[in-house]
Amino acid sequence: MNAIDLNLLVALDALLTEGSVTGAARRLGLSTSATSRTLTRLRTATGDPLLVRAGRGLVPTPRAAEMRERVHALTRDARAVLQPEPAEIDPATLARTFTIRASEAFLEFLSGVLVMTLRQAAPGVRLRFVQKPDKNAQPLRDGLVDLEIGLLGTEAPEIRTRLLFVDRRVGVARTGHELLAGGITPERYAACEHIATSRDGSFAEPIDDALEALGLRRSVVVVVPGFPDAMRIASQSDLVAVVPRSCLGNRMRPGEAGPAGLQSFELPLALPRFNISAIWHPRLDADPAHRWLRDTVAGVCRAAYPR
């Protein structure tokens, strides 16, 4: 680093642009003598006279004339690198690829809206959705994932989060299921056959603890990896499932029949609500493009699931 002085590059740009020590000194805010000494240093560094006397003025050597545009471009780029990024960006001019890690449920019910919103505002932006097999923060740390959407499950202390919406669990069953006729009690609910959703194949879900507290147990006969799978099976069988309210989208309210012959219902048990968050690494905290992406995702979720 001691062999490189970027101030010389700025001075060289001024000298080649002005073709005059006096003019370059005025541009640089230096004295004429200081600029003259800088020209001497530049001649030593480049091994070329750069500017030579011609009458009462100075003219560039062939090498100086050849490097003039390159030096100007380098100086401009160096200034751009060493300046703060603008606080705001114009999404219409943004050209970037963002990698988002999200659950299958988010992809099914919100990815289409998010894609269309981003495409309308920023046609130069590309999205890459990747699967979310776990809550490991390493892909965020390694820069493989720009934004994660879901439950915060990592203990990585540096990770940044933003609440998108508060979710809760509801039940779903096919339209016309006998459970939906009359009041749904814990006993009637537990007496049904059930679908569990688990990435690791577990038959247990949070609702089992609530049932056990009442001395009840349910019979889980199918385990699937994702909530859309549970909803699909429930709509075509006599099995019932528990899914996040967000999985219903805006197409179906609890107690109302929805598409594909599926109806949701309020669970007869008190279960805790849970936060769905945007999760990212602090290296992207101040990046205006990433901040715009976070704001857009938050806006889409807020519109779909108002608090």
Rank of each mutant, 00 (worst) to 15 (best):
F129A: 01
E108D: 13
L147R: 04
G143N: 01
E155G: 10
T97G: 14
P133L: 12
E155N: 08
G143L: 02
A95V: 15
E108I: 02
D134Y: 08
L144E: 09
R101S: 14
F98V: 08
A156L: 12
R128W: 01
E148I: 10
L114D: 05
G153L: 00
F109N: 11
T154Q: 01
A105C: 14
L152C: 03
G112T: 09
L118Y: 04
G153P: 05
G143R: 03
F129W: 14
A122I: 07
I149S: 11
E155T: 13
I100Y: 07
G150Y: 02
R101G: 09
P157H: 01
V113E: 03
E148N: 04
T154P: 03
A121K: 07
L147A: 07
R119I: 03
E104N: 13
K132L: 05
R101L: 08
F109Q: 15
A92M: 00
Q138N: 09
Q138F: 08
T154F: 02
V113I: 00
L147F: 09
F106G: 06
Q120T: 10
L94V: 13
L110D: 08
R119A: 12
D142G: 00
V125Y: 15
E155Y: 04
L110H: 01
Q131I: 06
Q120A: 09
F98C: 11
G143A: 02
T117F: 02
M116E: 04
L118I: 15
A121I: 03
T93F: 06
